[in-house]
Simulated assay, not measured.
Amino acid sequence: MSVIHHVIDRLKLNVSNIEGVQSIRPILDLERVLPLYDLYDAFASIVWCRNRGVDKNQTFLQENVNTLRTLVGY
């Protein structure tokens, strides 16, 4: 079996798995949920920088501050 056919078979299996899960409970709308994960990740990363040294991790801190500002519109 070629790699392409293997990938197609795996995708078909995943679709049937999703359909099975949907019969039990609805699948989350990722368009609405993923920004919350981005918010959580940025906030947790800022705490990580605070705990491990803001000066040593200034670039990483600033990236996450910018992410938070973008997400909250500040």
Rank of each mutant, 00 (worst) to 15 (best):
G20N: 13
L13C: 08
A42K: 01
V65M: 10
V47K: 12
L30W: 08
V65D: 03
K56W: 04
L61N: 03
L68I: 15
A44S: 11
V72F: 11
Y40T: 04
I4V: 14
V65W: 03
S23P: 00
C49H: 05
V54G: 02
R50C: 14
Q22I: 09
Q62N: 15
V72A: 04
D38N: 08
L36Q: 15
T59S: 11
V21Y: 04
V54M: 10
Y37F: 12
G73I: 01
N17A: 05
G53M: 14
V33M: 04
L11Y: 05
H5I: 07
T59W: 03
R10I: 04
E19W: 07
R32Y: 06
V47G: 01
P35H: 05
D29W: 05
L34S: 09
L61I: 02
V65Q: 06
E63D: 11
F60P: 00
T67Y: 00
E63F: 03
I27C: 10
V47M: 14
L13P: 01
S2E: 06
I8K: 02
L36F: 14
L36H: 13
S45E: 11
Y74E: 07
I27Q: 06
L11V: 13
K12A: 05
G53F: 14
L34T: 07
H6R: 15
V3F: 12
V33W: 02
N66F: 05
R52A: 04
L61Q: 06
V72G: 00
H5M: 07
T70V: 09
T70S: 14
I18H: 08
S16N: 09
E31Y: 12
C49G: 07
L68Y: 10
Q62R: 15
G20S: 12
V47P: 02
T59R: 08
A42Q: 03
G73W: 02
R10P: 00
D29L: 09
S16T: 13
E19A: 03
Q22T: 08
L71Y: 06
Y40D: 06
E19N: 08
D55K: 15
P35F: 07
F43R: 01
Q58P: 02
P35S: 06
V7Q: 09
F60N: 11
V72Q: 10
T70R: 14
P35A: 01
I46E: 06
E63Y: 06
V33G: 08
L28M: 13
F43N: 01
E63L: 08
